[in-house]
Simulated scan of single mutants.
Amino acid sequence: MPKILIIEDQLEVRQNIEDILSLEDYEVISAPDGETGLALAKQHLPDLILCDVMMPRVTGFEVLMSLRQDPNLAVIPFILLTAKADHHAFRQGMELGADDYLTKPFTIDELLHAITTRLDRHYQRQAMVESRLDNLRQQVTRSLPHELLTPLNGILGTSQLLINFYDSLSHNEVMESLHDIKTSGERLHRLVENFLLMADLDLLLASPTRLEVWQSRLSQYTELPLSLALVLENLGQNQPRRQDVEMMIVPQRVQVAEPDFQKIVQELLDNAFKFSLPGTLVQLEAVAKNGTCHLTIRDHGRGMAKEELNSIGAHVQFRRHEFEQQGSGLGLTLAQRLTELYGGKLAIASVPGEGTTITIQGWESDSI
């Protein structure tokens, strides 16, 4: 039975709506003011909220704003009720995240139709999120055990070696073992981070309300070449390949939050290192064209065939029986989704035996 919260300061109106919804087998909760309504929303987590606009102390707009800022309440469908058909008020409500608007007096059919429509859309959205989660769970179930066990076995095996033979090992052998443990730990940490980020992005893309909460991040900037220099300083186990990187960077500010920008470049560089031999050139170029940033990463490795390019996705690896590279296959997918989240487009061109070029276009930028 769907649970509906009514927030309405006029007693007669509130009781009439309660009676109508109760007859339609809805579970009804009501509040005489916005402050009480917010408290009941947090307590009961209703499936839908009907809220009057003009109320003393806390208005309907303020109730809506508070709800949309609370992660536990942000996705609840919200219908504003008003006695005045004001276009400005209507736009204000919709911009704050209202799902619908009813002008008093409204008919029983109008009320029930608005509620049914918003609940149906809400349930469809929930079903889509659950479908994405089920798909992610299946992908993780197939790929996660192996990818977690590989570095974990390295940590356990090397630490056991130190325990058993510490007294007979030289200082250099101990340091080498500790370095191996650290490398495996870093790989395990990054793998878990990537799986969590992929789950967050799946939910984000399936829920417009979650995307609204992210809007402040989408307006942040990253300065080049400073941020790229930081990426190269923190290559982790790929640090020996730093000398293979050739950069050509035009100074500019790119409209991408710095943590996400660095994550994108880190994953693309990792992919370039993974599929090319040490000592071969990896070119990193960032130029500005018509107010947008054009970022290119080019390796001279083994490349990918057309069918492999068409199959790129999370948890996918190519020709693992031929090439025992490490990784879960998440990197390119994460880079692509983050790129698109900021209005960019990621393109891949590859020739088997010659290498791969990844280009990002469309991010807004300005010179510095």
Rank of each mutant, 00 (worst) to 15 (best):
F195N: 04
I297H: 00
K289F: 14
V63F: 05
V287H: 11
K274A: 03
R253T: 14
K289D: 14
V174Q: 11
L228W: 01
T183R: 13
G157I: 10
A41M: 12
P352G: 02
N172R: 09
M128C: 06
R68P: 14
S227M: 11
Q239D: 11
S177A: 12
R217W: 07
D70M: 07
I368H: 01
N194C: 04
S66M: 04
K306Y: 05
S184T: 03
P2W: 03
M304L: 14
G344V: 02
G362V: 03
M247K: 15
R132D: 10
R242I: 13
F273I: 00
I155C: 08
N194I: 04
A85V: 07
R190H: 07
S365L: 01
L178V: 12
L162E: 08
H171Y: 07
L284K: 04
L230I: 05
L102V: 04
Y166T: 14
H44P: 04
H171E: 14
I20E: 00
E324I: 05
I20S: 00
G362P: 01
Q262D: 03
E324H: 10
I17T: 00
L50N: 00
P278L: 06
T357W: 01
L226D: 14
H88W: 02
Q138P: 06
Y342K: 08
A85R: 08
L178Y: 03
S311I: 08
R142Q: 14
Q361D: 15
E130Q: 12
G331K: 01
G331Y: 02
Y166W: 10
L81T: 03
L81Y: 00
R125T: 02
F165Q: 15
E267D: 07
L144R: 02
L203A: 03
V231Q: 00
A288F: 07
T183P: 10
A31P: 10
G37R: 02
Q325M: 12
G279I: 09
C51P: 01
E258R: 05
E233L: 11
L281M: 11
G355P: 11
M304W: 05
M175I: 10
F78A: 03
D70C: 06
E322T: 13
V174F: 00
D86A: 07
A314W: 06
Q243D: 15
L156Q: 12
V256W: 02
L11S: 07
L197Y: 06
R125V: 00
L346H: 13
V256G: 10
Q243T: 13
F90D: 11
P259K: 03
Q283A: 13
T280D: 07
G236Q: 11
I348F: 07
V282I: 09
P77V: 00
V75W: 00
G236P: 09
L230P: 02
V213M: 15
L112T: 02
Q10C: 12
N135Q: 14
T82F: 04
L228I: 10
Q139T: 10
V250G: 08
Q262K: 12
R121T: 07
I4L: 09
L152D: 13
D25A: 01
I297P: 00
L309Q: 08
K289Q: 13
I348H: 04
P259A: 06
L235S: 05
H315P: 14
Q92S: 08
L161T: 15
